[in-house]
Computed example of a mutant assay.
Amino acid sequence: MKVFGIAGYSGSGKTTLIERVLPQLAARGVRAAVIKHTHHDFDIDRPGKDSWRARAAGAAAVLLASDHRTAVLTEHRNTPPVLDDLLAALPPCDLVLVEGYKREAIPKLEVHRAETGKPWLFPEDRQILAVASDAEPPNGFPRIDIDAIPSLTDFILNHALSRPTA
Rank of each mutant, 00 (worst) to 15 (best):
residue 23 P to C: 10
residue 58 G to Y: 04
residue 34 V to H: 00
residue 50 D to R: 12
residue 130 A to C: 05
residue 85 D to V: 12
residue 101 Y to P: 09
residue 92 P to M: 05
residue 33 A to Q: 08
residue 20 R to G: 13
residue 112 H to E: 01
residue 144 I to L: 10
residue 89 A to V: 01
residue 146 I to E: 08
residue 131 V to P: 04
residue 44 I to M: 12
residue 27 A to C: 09
residue 77 R to N: 15
residue 24 Q to T: 12
residue 6 I to L: 09
residue 112 H to F: 03
residue 42 F to V: 09
residue 61 A to F: 14
residue 26 A to H: 03
residue 151 S to M: 07
residue 118 K to P: 01
residue 39 H to M: 03
residue 69 R to I: 13
residue 3 V to M: 09
residue 41 D to W: 10
residue 135 A to H: 02
residue 40 H to F: 07
residue 110 E to H: 11
residue 59 A to K: 12
residue 121 L to I: 14
residue 163 R to Y: 12
residue 30 V to C: 14
residue 39 H to C: 02
residue 108 K to N: 03
residue 123 P to H: 01
residue 135 A to C: 09
residue 128 I to V: 12
residue 33 A to N: 06
residue 54 A to T: 07
residue 132 A to N: 05
residue 26 A to L: 04
residue 17 L to P: 06
residue 7 A to F: 04
residue 133 S to H: 10
residue 70 T to L: 11
residue 7 A to E: 04
residue 137 P to C: 10
residue 54 A to W: 05
residue 28 R to Q: 05
residue 118 K to I: 10
residue 45 D to H: 03
residue 84 D to A: 13
residue 30 V to W: 11
residue 42 F to S: 04
residue 147 D to W: 03
residue 14 K to P: 00
residue 68 H to I: 15
residue 18 I to K: 07
residue 144 I to W: 00
residue 61 A to G: 14
residue 50 D to G: 15
residue 60 A to C: 04
residue 130 A to M: 03
residue 43 D to Q: 12
residue 158 N to I: 01
residue 130 A to S: 08
residue 21 V to C: 14
residue 48 G to K: 05
residue 73 L to C: 11
residue 82 V to L: 13
residue 52 W to V: 07
residue 91 P to T: 09
residue 37 H to L: 07
residue 85 D to P: 15
residue 9 Y to C: 03
residue 38 T to V: 14
residue 165 T to S: 15
residue 87 L to D: 04
residue 12 S to N: 12
residue 97 L to H: 01
residue 8 G to A: 10
residue 99 E to N: 03
residue 6 I to C: 06
residue 103 R to Q: 13
residue 17 L to Q: 09
residue 138 P to A: 04
residue 86 L to I: 13
residue 69 R to A: 13
residue 154 D to M: 02
residue 114 A to Q: 08
residue 27 A to F: 03
residue 151 S to N: 12
residue 79 T to V: 14
residue 133 S to K: 11
residue 43 D to M: 14
residue 100 G to E: 05
residue 149 I to V: 03
residue 67 D to I: 14
residue 56 A to F: 01
residue 104 E to M: 06
residue 158 N to T: 12
residue 163 R to V: 13
residue 159 H to Y: 10
residue 50 D to S: 13
residue 47 P to T: 00
residue 33 A to K: 09
residue 18 I to L: 11
residue 162 S to F: 10
residue 141 F to Q: 06
residue 46 R to T: 13
residue 16 T to F: 04
residue 96 V to E: 02
residue 87 L to R: 03
residue 52 W to L: 02
residue 138 P to K: 01
residue 155 F to P: 11
residue 27 A to R: 08
residue 60 A to M: 08
residue 48 G to Y: 01
residue 76 H to D: 01
residue 113 R to E: 01
residue 77 R to H: 15
residue 57 A to Q: 14
residue 26 A to T: 08
residue 107 P to G: 06
residue 101 Y to D: 07
